[in-house]
Structure formats: C-alpha cells, structure tokens
Design a protein around this nucleic acid. Structure first.
Ligand SMILES: [Mn+2]
Ligand SMILES: [Mn+2]
Ligand SMILES: [Mn+2]
Ligand SMILES: [Mn+2]
Lengths: 217, 217
DNA sequence: AGATATTTTTAGGCAAGGCTAAAAAAATAA
DNA sequence: TTATTTTTTTAGCCTTGCCTAAAAATATCT
C-alpha cells in the first residue's frame, strides 16, 4: 500500500460520509488538489486491488477491505494528533500537517502501544472519534451551533472545519472543546448569534456557527 | 528532499565514517540493496543539488549541507528509537525498522519537542550518540571487546551490529548497556573470550566480541 | 426531444527512481 | 608493459503517479 493509495482511500472514506451515494471523480480531485484524470487512473488501480467498487461514470465506493484500511489511517491520524497535543504540547491548530505524515507509518505495534500510552483516548483534539483497533468508530451525538435556538445552553464538542485560521479564531474568542455556550440571541437578518461563553458575550457569524459542533445538555 | 534522497545521504554519511576517502558506488549499492547503476544516477542528482561532491570514478563525499542533512536524519532516527524504548516499552531489537520510517517525518518542531519530552537524551538504545539540533555529535570513547586483554574489567557501552538476532543473543546472555564485563580469559586458538557478567561466566566467540563496544574503567 | 454544458474517461507524455545489458575506465595480474 | 578482471558509467527500458488535450458519456436547459 503506497502513500498515495492510502491518501485516496482516506479521502474517499471522508467524502462517502456525506455524499451517501458513490463518490464522484471531481470531488476527489478537489480534495486531493489533483486532476480528475489522475483520480480515474488511481481509482481503477484501487478497484483492481479490490479496495473500492468502481463502475465507469458511476462514482466509487469503498469495499469492506478498503473501508477498514481507511479507518486504520484515520485511527493513526487522530491518535497522533492526541499525542502531539497531550504529550508534546502542540496546540490544536498545529497538529494536522504533522499527523498527515505520521498517519502513514506502518506498524501495528506502534499504534497500539501509543494508544495504551495515551490511555485509550476516544476523541482527537478536534472532537473527532478515534476508531479502535478493529475499525469500530463511535458515532458522536452532535449538532451544529447554527441549528440551536436562542435561549438554549450547549457544550462545544467539536469543529467541522479544523483549519488553523478557524481554530485560532476560536482560541481568540476563548471557545474550546468543553466550553459551555449559551445562545443569547439570533439575528434574523444574517443569522449571526450572540453567545455567552464563560460569562463573556461574543457575537459570531453564521459561518462560524455552522462550523462548530455542540451537544445539547 | 525525497525519502529516497534522504536514505542515500544517510548511507553515504555512515559509510564515510569508516572509508575515510570518497565512498564508492558499489558499497552504497550494497547497503541500499540496489544496483550500482541506480547509485550513479542518484549521486549525480545529489551532486547537482550540491549535497555531495562527485567526480566520475572517484567516489562521493558529503558537502557541509549534505552532512548536516544526514545528521538531522540520524538525529531523528535515534531520537525516535529512544522514544520507542523509553516511552512505549519497545525492546531494543524492535525499534530500528520503525525508526527507519519515522526518521523521514518533516517537522523541526516535532523533533525538538520530542527531545525535550525525552529529557535531551545523548545516546540511543544501542549506545550511539544523538546529534543535537545544530548537528553536533559527541564522539564516544569506546573500544571493541575483542581488543581487551584478559584480566581487564570494562563496561558495555554499545553495539556495532544492531540486528535483532545479535541483540536477542545479548538479551539471552543478559548483557546490556551498562553491564560490567570482566575478561576472564582469551583462547588463543579461536580468540573466543570467557567473560564474567554479573557473577556469571559466559563464553563468547570472537565474532560476538568484535561487535560489542566497551569502555575501560 | 434536441441542443448545450458538465463530468468523466482515454490517449499520450513526463519526471522520479528503479532495472539490465553494454561500454568505458581503473585496478590488478602476468 | 600488456592482458585480464573489477568497478563504474551510460544507454535504454519499466512502473508509479501525475499532467494536458481530446473524446465520450451524462446531465441540464430550452
Ligand atoms: Mn487532522
Ligand atoms: Mn483532527
Ligand atoms: Mn537504528
Ligand atoms: Mn540505534
């Protein structure tokens, strides 16, 4: 399994969580920052190896084998992110790029020992669930903050976008995983929200609110 | 810098420690388990990038830039080996292959944070010195056990061969880094040695003795 | 339905990093 | 010194993973 094949499987896995049908060529190319023709090439190779199911012009989906492989990569990615934050004091906006490299290290023993050392974490620093060694992944019950009505109190449990600028914005507003957020009011005009986070009022745009996952109490 | 280029630089670095002149094509090919023609190709590419000095038929040597790059890879390799043994409880014969992968992870911050977490170790689990972040590497004063005369007491400080079979042999004989070894007698015929390690007598062949580094008291 | 636009695939090419076989240079032996 | 062997380089080929341009299939609009 090459580095490149692993990245394709991971991207197909992530895309198939939303687009419940077959994943289309163009969306893979967009995420991979490559060209549709390259995607077609690789997808045909993955189909020969029985990692994906592919019919011309019909999009692609993972086989059980392909899905398991993808989950193991996601497992490693998120486990390493926990290590970087918890053990090496990285901040949550610095870990993704390094984890993109570390997720390709091939050693079952390494990931299992690391998991043990970290105390069997179930979520990564962005609130995403970590698959266990059998590929089982918890479904975390969460809603977007943008779907919450005024007057409700919720807890921040994750981010949809985990790009550094967004995470740094949250740091600046002192919104972190576990923060209690009260939706004070919602503006009809632009759907912006006024929140109370730790006794401080903050106004956030709809774009912000639709990238924050929360749990109702 | 690709994975492959990094491996070439590392191999050239290790070979140039012994073969004090230019490193020859064939020895690189042997270590890399590739063919001399492939080595010539790559060496020419490295010369263009000013990482090595190369004249046809004259062997190859590292430039300052190439040497620093090689040292940073060695630094990462050995630091990760310490992590695997100290933090994740790997045994010293299990770490090399994983470290071969981890040494290519690109993040200065990662290696420096890891170094800090590990308490700035100066040697890896096989007794080899770890270069610091400026590329400075300690020269450890050590001799081969095979050079020690009968009657002397020494301390085991490293291994020359760090292949799993050899390391496992040492485990079985309960010889570890830090063990005190007394050379009881040396057999003229085959240069085998009788040792006293922790109040136990062991006989080892010359081959074993010439792969163990020791420090005289 | 028929025309047009979009998506996807195919065809052909390129760079990296390998390989084998043959040629050239250097080292060694006679 | 000349002949032979060994080492090294060159030439040409292959696979992987990417690309562009063109062709084919599918989707959308009138
Ligand atoms: Mn990530
Ligand atoms: Mn994450
Ligand atoms: Mn090693
Ligand atoms: Mn080592």
């Amino acid at each position: 399994m090459t580095y490149s094949e692993e990245n394709y499987l991971k991207v197909i896995y992530h895309l198939s969580l939303n687009h419940s049908k077959g994943v289309n060529t163009n969306s893979i190319a967009n995420v991979m920052e490559s060209k549709p023709s390259s995607v077609t090439d690789m997808v045909q190779k993955l189909a020969e190896k029985e990692l994906v199911i592919y019919k011309k012009y019909q999009g692609v989906s993972l086989t059980e084998k392909g899905k398991f492989t993808a989950l193991m990569i996601v497992r490693k990615h998120r486990m390493w992110e926990v290590f970087l934050v918890e053990t090496l004091d990285f901040s949550w906006d610095e870990v993704h790029d390094v984890a993109e490299q570390l997720e390709h290290i091939k050693s079952e023993k390494l990931i299992n020992k690391l998991e043990e050392f970290l105390g069997f974490p179930t979520e990564d620093p962005h609130g995403d669930p970590i698959p266990d060694r059998n590929g089982k992944i918890a479904k975390i019950d969460k809603k977007l903050l943008s779907e919450i009505n005024a007057g409700k109190k919720v807890i921040c449990v994750g981010v949809k976008d985990s790009s550094p600028p967004f995470l740094q914005y949250l740091d600046k507003q002192q919104i972190a995983l576990g923060s209690t957020i009260e939706v004070v009011s919602k503006e009809d005009f632009d759907l912006s929200l006024t929140l109370r986070v730790d006794d401080k009022d903050v106004t956030v745009s709809n774009k912000i609110a639709s990238n924050l996952f929360v749990k109702t109490l």
